[in-house]
Design a protein around this nucleic acid. Structure first.
Lengths: 213, 213, 213, 213
DNA sequence: AATGAATGAGCCTTCATTCAT
DNA sequence: TATGAATGAAGGCTCATTCAT
C-alpha cells in the first residue's frame, strides 16, 4: 500500500495473482490468500484490508511491470530479443512492430492461466465503476491506440494498405477481446488464434510479414 | 426436474432468470430465489437441489424457447414481425436475414440487462466443463454457422461478395463476442455497435442493406 | 420481533436477560447467548440480528411484564398481596402505597442480580440516544412522577407533611438512583437501604408508617 | 510499574486518561492507546501489560493528584482562588468550604467528558472486587466523610442546623451519585444540578450561602 | 407437496500479545 | 529500551441444506 511494497507485500501480491487468475475474483476469499501465502489471518490484514484491496494492488503492480499487458510499441522498440535478428538500436519497421504486437496478444490469449481476464470481468461487472478508472476499458482503448499507431505508420511507409485505420483498429481490438473472452471459458488452440490473426492481416498486408513464434 | 416442468417450476425458472441476468451466477443465493418466487425454502428444494441446478435448468429452458439467443436463421424465417413489411410466408433474401440477424445481435448486446452473459462466464469459468457441453462455445459456434449460412446464400444470389466465407463468419463472431464482453463491463452506446457492424458490412455488401431499427 | 413472540424467542429473551444482568451489555456476545440458549448460531440470527437487537427486545418484554420495574401506583392497587392484611378492594392509603413503592424499590436495589441497571448504563452511555427513547431517563421520570402522585395525595389526606413535593420527589429519585448505581458495583446490605429510606421518610412522615418486610 | 513513573509513563497515563474518559473502559483497546501516545505497540507493553494495568495506573495517579476527585477539605484550604475574595492563609468557614465542595461536585457532574465515571462503572461491574479496594466505594465513602466533616464543623459554629449529620451526609452523597449516574447517560443541565443542591441545602442552611459560579 | 425453523460450516474482521531486530 | 510485523484466538455474519410438521 505504501510507496515501497515490502517483501511480504510483494509475496502476497504474487500469490494472490495466481489465485485470481485461477479462480476469478468473486470466488477468492481472504482465507484462500492466507493459505497460499503461509501467513496468518491477522498478518494479511496488516497489509491489505480486503480481497478487493488486494485485487486492485495486483492490478497496479501489473501495470507498473507490464508483464501481462499488451506490448506497447514503446516496449517493443527496446526489446529486440522478442524479434529475431533485429538490431535493438534500429528503429523497427511497422511490420515488425505489428508482428510483435500480435505475438504478444497471442501469448496473452493462450496463456490464460496467467491472465486476469476473468477476474477483471467479474470485478468490473459487479462494480459499475466510472469508465475512466475501468481497467478493461482502458486496456481496450490502449489496444486500439497501439494498433492505430502502428498501422498508420505502416500506411505511410507503404508497408500496409488501409483506408479506414480507425475502423480497422477497432475491429481488430474487438476480435482480440472476443478471443480473450472465449479463452477464459473454452480452451483455444494456437491454430485458432493464428487463423484469426491471419485473416485480419490479409486485409492490410501481404501475409509473409506475420511470423509465427 | 421431472419430464414436464410444472407451473411452479416454470415460475421459479422465470424469476431465477431475472436474478441471474441481474447478479450473474456467483452472487446468487438460494435465498434470493426463494424471496423472488414467494416460495418456501423447502419448497424450492423440492424442485431444484442447488443454485447450479436452477441455472442449468434456466439455460435448458432458454434453448427450447430461444427467447434470449441469437436469432437462428430458422427463427428469423418465422418471425417476420421483426422485419418491416415482409410477408412471413415468403422466403427472405440473404440481405434481409443478415439485417435481422445483426439487429438481434445488437439488441442482445445493448440490453445486457436481459442477458445471461455474465452469469454464463462466471459459471463456465469456474467449471472447466468439456467444450462439448459448454454453452458459450455452443452459442459461438451457432453464431458462426448462422453467419456462414446467410453469407454463402448471399454470395450465391449475388447480394454479397465474400471470398472467405468461413473467415468472415468467424471474424464477425469474434467481434460480436468482444462487443458482448465489453458491454458487460462498460456501458456501450448504440452508435458504438452500429459503427462496428457498419465497418464489417462494408467488407461484403453495399451499405444501404443494413437498416437500423 | 413480531407481534407474537414465539416460544423460541421467549426462551432466548429469558436466557439473554440473565446474561445481561450478569455481564452488563458490552461484554455480551452472540456466542454467549447461543451457548446459553442451546441454539445454533444461525438459529439465533433467525430471530435477532444483533446483541443490541436482543437487548432492546429484552427491555420491551420487561416493560410489558413490569416484573422488574417500579411498582406503579396502579399496580399496587390491584396487588394487595404485596401488603399485609389490606383488602384488595379498598382504595389504598397514600402511606400504604408509599410503603409498597419503597418496598419494591428496595427489592430492585438489593436483587441486582436480576437487574439490568449495569447493562442499561453501558448501553445508553455509549449511545447518545435522544432523551425521549432513553430507558433510564424514562425510568427516572416515572419514578419521580409516582412519588409526586403518592406524596401529594398523602399531603391532602394529612398523612404526609411536605411543602415542596416536586423537590422531595426528585431528591428521593436521585437517592434511589444513587443506591442502584452503588449496588451494581458494591454489594449493599438491606440495612443500608433501610437506613436511607428511613432518613428520607423522616422528612415527611411519622416513622411507624414504614414497615419493613 | 516502576517506583518512579518515567516521563514516558506519565505521558501514557495522561493520554490514556483522556481515552478512558471518552470511551469508558470496555471499549478501549491497546491500539487506541498506542495511537494516542505516538508510541510503538511493543513500547507500550514495556511499561504496561494490559489495558487493565493502565487503567489501574491511571486511577492511582488520579488519587495522588486529586485533580478529578472531590475537593477534599484540605485541598480547598490551599485553593483560595476557587472562592471569592477569601485569603488563602485564613482558615475557611464551614459555609465556604461547603460551597467549594458543592461547586467541585457540580463541575464533576457537568463535565463528565473529563470524568472516569463510566469507565469506573464498567471496570468494577465486571470485577466483583472486594469492597476494600473498590474505587467507587472509596470515592463514595470519602465523599460522605468530607460532608460530615464540613457539616459538623458548621453545626458547631452555628452556620448550619443539622440534627443527623451522618444521615444528611449519606443522603447528599447518594443524590450526588444519582446525578453522576444520570449524567453519564442523559445530558444534564446546570440548572438541574443547581436545583437539586439548592433543595438539599435548604434542609440545613439559609440559602444565600450557596454561591453559584 | 409445502413450510420455515434450525443447523453448522465457512468467511470476515479485530485485538491482545509476542518476538526478532 | 524501542519497534512494528506477525500470530492466532475470538466473535460477527451468511448461506446451503435438512427436517419435523
Amino acid at each position: 500500500m505504501g510507496a515501497k511494497a515490502s517483501r511480504t507485500e510483494k509475496h502476497i501480491l504474487a500469490k494472490a495473482r495466481e489465485i485470481f487468475s485461477k479462480k476469478g475474483f468473486k470466488n477468492v476469499t481472504m482465507q484462500d490468500i492466507v493459505d497460499a501465502c503461509d501467513i496468518s489471518r491477522g498478518g494479511l490484514y496488516l497489509h491489505f484490508s480486503s480481497v478487493e484491496d488486494i485485487f486492485l494492488a495486483v492490478l497496479k503492480a501489473e501495470d507498473s511491470i507490464g508483464s501481462d499487458n499488451e506490448a506497447s510499441s514503446k516496449n517493443v522498440e527496446g526489446e529486440g530479443d522478442y524479434l529475431d535478428g533485429i538490431s535493438v538500436s534500429t528503429k523497427l519497421s511497422a511490420s515488425d512492430r505489428f508482428a510483435a504486437f500480435l505475438k504478444e496478444q497471442k501469448r496473452f490469449i493462450l496463456r490464460r492461466k496467467d491472465g486476469l481476464s476473468l477476474a477483471l470481468m467479474e470485478y468490473y461487472s459487479g462494480h459499475n465503476s466510472s469508465p475512466d478508472n475501468n481497467y478493461i476499458k482502458g486496456r481496450f482503448d490502449d489496444c486500439v491506440h497501439t494498433i492505430e499507431e502502428i498501422v498508420s505508420d505502416g500506411a505511410l511507409s507503404g508497408e500496409f494498405e488501409c483506408e479506414d485505420v480507425a475502423g480497422f483498429a477497432r475491429n481488430l481490438a474487438y476480435v482480440l477481446e472476443g478471443l480473450k473472452t472465449m479463452a477464459t471459458v473454452v480452451s483455444i488452440s494456437e491454430q485458432t488464434v493464428d487463423k484469426e490473426m491471419f485473416y485480419i492481416l490479409q486485409g492490410i498486408v501481404p501475409v509473409d510479414q506475420y511470423i509465427n513464434n
